[in-house]
């Protein structure tokens, strides 16, 4: 992940320019990290509208903190610490509908859509949709901290040391969290091979 380290240094440099009042550098940081923050938060809370609202708050906090920013950690570690904090708070406050309820609604909605869609690939689409639904449910079933660790590891490719700083624990605790999380996921998803 050497390439990522170089990129992160560049991010910190950009943030220092933002600190000096350079709005263009903020725009660069936003473009670079917007998708990963939104996607991470979306997979945490499994509601796109809530995810975008929380991601807006993440970048607002980045902007608001510019005057006190010090590059003591990698920029993405800081960014994901803010994002994780907000996602966990949102889950705790129950601002978004519970995953299981929402996923049940999605599943109930499906027959109507499937009746309307009579293309030849409908059976295949149903299987794919069912599998995707199972993936979302399996991730939603993980305790919040394990979920955050898996999402940062699998999709955002954060290093163990970064995940540890985001979750405020040791690297060995992160490895243990991931091992338990993947153990659960193997039990639920390995049949898909």
């Amino acid at each position: 992940m050497g390439g990522a380290a170089v990129a992160l240094d560049y991010d910190a440099e950009l943030m220092l320019r933002v600190k000096e009042g350079d709005g263009a550098s903020f725009a660069v940081l936003l473009e670079k990290h917007r998708s990963s923050v939104i996607h991470f938060v979306y997979r945490m809370v499994q509601n796109q509208a809530v995810a975008e609202e929380l991601a807006q708050e993440v970048f607002l906090r980045v902007y608001r903190s510019r005057s006190t920013y010090e590059p003591t950690a990698k920029f993405t570690t800081w960014l994901f610490r803010i994002a994780t904090h907000l996602a966990l708070n949102s889950l705790r406050d129950g601002k978004n509908q519970r995953y299981e309820d929402r996923l049940d609604e999605q599943t109930e909605d499906q027959p109507a859509r499937q009746l309307a869609d009579r293309r030849p690939s409908v059976e295949q689409s149903m299987v794919l949709e069912a599998r995707l639904d199972e993936v979302r449910r399996a991730v939603a079933s993980l305790p919040a901290k394990q979920r955050a660790a898996v999402l940062m590891h699998k999709y955002e490719e954060l290093e163990y040391s970064q995940i540890a700083r985001v979750l405020n624990c040791s690297e060995s605790a992160v490895k243990s969290l991931l091992f338990r999380a993947y153990e659960t996921l193997r039990a639920r998803l390995a049949y898909m091979a």
Partner: peptide, 12 residues
């Protein structure tokens, strides 16, 4: 298999 299953979950 888990890795590939997670790959199927594309973001919105």
């Amino acid at each position: 298999a888990v890795w590939e299953a997670l790959d199927r979950w594309r973001p919105e």
